[in-house]
Amino acid sequence: MAAGTQQQKQGIFAAHQIAALARDGAILPLTPFAADQIQPASLDLRLGRRAWRMRASFLPGGKSLGDAIKRHALHEINLSAGAVLETNCVYLAELSESLALPKDISAAANPKSSTGRIDVFTRVIADRARGFDTIEPGYSGPLYAEISPRTFPILARENSRLSQIRFRRGNTKLDGAGHAALHAREKLVSNANPDFAGGIPVSIDLSGFEGGLVGYRAKRHTGLIDVDRTASCDAADFWEPIFSRGGGELVLDPGEFYILASKEAVRVPPDHAAEMTPFDPLVGEFRVHYAGFFDPGFGAEEAGGAGARAVLEVRSHDVPFILQDGQAVGWLVYERMMETPHNLYGARLGSNYQAQGLKLSKHFRTPR
């Protein structure tokens, strides 16, 4: 693609355009990308060799992250051979990818789906940043990941991938009318009359899946999860299944972590991407979905994903809270792609969560 042509387009960068950004020097990896590192509309970020156990979470707020590490780090950790990151601790890790973005390109980061589903709170920080997970247009410098396992201790190492980043040019998000028009064309969710005020509403399913299963609650004091190993853990050692009792309600215990699923089947058409955002915070003291990126093709029939649900990571804060079947818990906000990816999210890419119902992270063997 000629540079002049690309500059006239606005939208989320597709995989082949992310590769072009790297070739042009806007993304600077320490080592060449892994074969599956570029996703249809995002780039997986790899942990670097060094991490630090921090005294507390922080934002640099216009100051150098290097200076902040010197002031607030308790000790340095070498990730080259792997290291255990303990629960309720805050770590800062350098990332293998740095940026030298053009002035008209910005970026946003998010935990990967597998990261959110094991309750690892992860945020990307740019040098001198005043906000998490937000990379300003024209940013040039290193990237770091703040990592805080909440429920399970994890084993991570250099090149582990906990976060992902999207690149965009221009105003890419749809407004209410844009969501309504796209839903009329594509039927983004399976419910009949969605409200488009903040995107596409997503509600909770407590009616029960196969066998009456409605979700999972994380156990405490479990073993270790190696973030790079698939199907390495027995789900029964880490999760307590929750079954419907016919009332359509679930009491969330404060501080506990739950995996639930949306009532709606969700579709992301090939020429759009989506992100889960919190519903109105006034509806209750709970947080839904740490990992919010949905790639083009998620839930799309042409990519083998018909009927895919949004899996929701849920935590109640401060007080017990009663969730009700069908209660709205989040918005799916859609954004225009600059170009349609050559490969969509799905089986062809080995995507872990296409056509999912209620599904734990890839680290767990499927409960029987």
Rank of each mutant, 00 (worst) to 15 (best):
I18W: 06
D271W: 03
R185V: 01
A328W: 05
S351V: 03
R315I: 15
K70S: 15
R55L: 07
S140E: 14
V251E: 15
L143M: 10
A129Y: 05
F286N: 05
A107T: 01
N88I: 05
R157C: 11
I118R: 04
S207N: 13
Y91N: 09
T151Q: 13
R336W: 10
F167W: 08
V84I: 13
D24W: 11
E97K: 08
A303V: 09
L43S: 05
E249A: 13
D325N: 15
Q164N: 01
Y144C: 08
A192V: 13
A300F: 13
D127N: 13
F279L: 01
Q354F: 14
D271T: 10
A51N: 03
G292Y: 02
P194N: 12
Q324G: 04
L252E: 09
G304T: 06
R55K: 09
R229M: 09
H342W: 04
L74P: 00
A192R: 14
S42C: 02
G176C: 12
L28P: 00
L206T: 11
F279Q: 06
G199R: 01
N159S: 14
G255P: 00
E256T: 02
A15N: 01
V311N: 02
A73W: 04
F294A: 05
G48T: 08
F293R: 03
R169C: 02
G66A: 12
N193W: 08
F121L: 09
Y139D: 07
V202D: 00
T230Q: 03
A2V: 06
A35K: 15
I12A: 10
A308L: 05
G346A: 05
K9V: 03
G305V: 10
E158N: 05
D253L: 09
D234E: 12
D253K: 09
L252Y: 08
F167P: 00
K63T: 13
F132V: 10
L188C: 08
L45E: 07
Q356I: 07
Y290M: 08
T122G: 00
D127R: 09
E339L: 12
L252C: 06
D271N: 14
Y353E: 02
V227S: 02
F257G: 00
F243N: 01
R161I: 02
G299M: 10
L101K: 10
K173R: 12
F33C: 12
L174W: 10
I105M: 07
I12K: 07
K173Y: 08
Q37L: 03
F364G: 00
P296I: 08
L143C: 07
A328D: 11
R168A: 10
G66L: 10
A218V: 08
F286M: 13
T151K: 07
G199F: 03
L21S: 07
S148A: 15
I135R: 03
S190A: 12
L47M: 11
G131H: 08
I18L: 11
L260E: 09
T277D: 08
I225T: 06
Y139W: 10
F298A: 09
R53G: 00
G4A: 14
E97C: 04
N343Q: 15
N159L: 11
A126G: 14
